[in-house]
Computed example of a mutant assay.
Amino acid sequence: MENPDFVDAQFHGYEPLRIVDDVINSFNDYSCDAADAMQKVLTQAPGMGEHSKAVEEGLDRWQLKVQRAADKNFDKFELYALNNVFRVPAEVTEAPVDGVDQSGIDAELEELWAQLRQELATKSELQQRVAAASRETQRWEAHQHAVEGLCTTRRSEALGRVLHEARQLDEELRRGREQLHGSTAEGPTCVQKALSDRRIQISTAGVSDLKVLSSMLCT
């Protein structure tokens, strides 16, 4: 069975213990910087210059207590981080292998990037439309009172023109109806006259005409 620490390092691509050490070292650096900053502020305070030795000793004791508390708790932090945060579960036995085919992932990322570019372009276009609409709204608001006043003063003239055009249209429709009725009335008269003439021609047929017709049918 492989060493769990080795498996963790292979899986994450780095040694988890180095991360824990970096956290501890960073805390120690910050505590030292804090002690130096407090010493500078206290020694520069009015009436504290002559007590610089006491300030330094007090800060040393404070830093020692902080360091002891940190060492005690960082031991717990190290155990918890290595066993619960960075530990690879037992069912995960294979670490990532370098050179694995990632073409599918790359294609998916490229598709997502294309969608993002499309969304950004759409957002930019919508922003331009909103800006244009806002400008048109401002122009309308700037001239709204003038337009309303113009409509109020010339309303009677506009109504007069509309009524005049409506009367002209009604007159044209009336003439069209009269012409339509006139052409319809003449139609049946012409047809009746043609039928009457045809009946006269048929009634004046003689015996000789009938003989000719009979000979044509029997031939």
Rank of each mutant, 00 (worst) to 15 (best):
L64P: 01
R135H: 12
K53W: 11
E125W: 06
E178A: 08
D21T: 10
E178N: 10
R154C: 07
V20I: 07
G13Q: 03
W113H: 04
L112S: 10
A114T: 00
A114N: 02
A185L: 13
T122C: 04
Y80S: 14
Q67I: 03
L116Y: 00
V7K: 01
M1A: 14
S183K: 15
E56Y: 05
Q115R: 05
S124E: 08
A35D: 08
S103I: 07
L42K: 03
S31D: 07
V41G: 07
K193W: 09
T152Y: 04
Y14C: 02
P4F: 04
H181M: 14
M216C: 07
S103F: 02
A107C: 08
T93F: 02
E125Q: 15
E178Q: 13
E78M: 10
F86K: 02
I105Q: 03
M38G: 02
K40E: 11
A54C: 04
G49L: 11
K193V: 11
E91R: 11
D5L: 07
T152A: 06
P89L: 09
R174P: 02
F6V: 13
M48F: 15
H164D: 09
V20D: 00
T204R: 14
V23K: 02
L173W: 10
E148L: 06
V212I: 11
S203M: 07
L180D: 13
V191T: 13
R61M: 08
E157D: 10
G13K: 02
E165Q: 15
K211S: 07
P46K: 10
F6H: 10
C218V: 14
G206F: 09
E125V: 11
V92L: 09
L217F: 05
R198H: 09
M1P: 08
I200K: 11
E15A: 04
C218T: 10
P89F: 06
A166F: 13
R167Y: 15
D106N: 09
S134H: 08
V162Q: 13
E78K: 14
S156D: 10
V55R: 00
L180C: 13
L210T: 08
L120P: 03
K211D: 03
Y80M: 06
D101C: 00
E15S: 04
A146D: 14
R167Q: 15
L163W: 15
A70G: 12
S26F: 07
R154S: 12
V130N: 04
E108T: 06
P16F: 01
L42N: 00
G49W: 10
A131C: 09
